[in-house]
């Protein structure tokens, strides 16, 4: 337990430092326009990757399983302007349903 808590504390301190120092050192200054254009695209690029990996990613392989229909159902829910919480619940329900049906 002692070693565990040591790790927790050390990792916490390092993470907090890393997270805080960047904005602290660079914050308050407006970004050059070209950098702003790059930063603006970070969100869609990373989110798209997160969607792709969380939907199709396996252990160093691509897997098509019940997650895919769940995420497709989520896409339909988003198209229908459903709130985020509903979108997430729809995805979970469809995936759970497909799993239950296909064993």
């Amino acid at each position: 337990m002692n070693a565990t808590w040591t790790v927790v504390v050390v990792v916490s301190v390092v993470t907090i430092a890393i997270k805080g120092l960047g904005p602290m050192l660079l914050g308050g200054r407006p970004l050059p326009p070209r950098m702003s254009a790059v930063v603006a695209l970070l969100a869609p690029a990373l989110l798209a990757a997160l969607v792709a990996v969380n939907t199709l990613g396996g252990d160093r392989e691509l897997v098509v399983d019940a997650r895919l229909p769940g995420v497709l159902a989520a896409a339909v829910a988003i198209k229908l302007k459903a709130p985020v919480l509903i979108v997430v619940i729809v995805a979970a329900l469809v995936t759970a349903g497909v799993r239950a049906l296909t064993g």
Partner: peptide, 26 residues
């Protein structure tokens, strides 16, 4: 995964992604 919770994460990220698609570059 029995509850489909592993599909909840990509669905959440998708819901966050769609509002980002403001122009062709995005």
């Amino acid at each position: 995964s029995t509850w489909g919770l592993d599909a909840a994460f990509p669905a959440l990220f998708l819901a966050l992604l769609v509002p980002q698609l403001r122009d062709r570059r995005a």
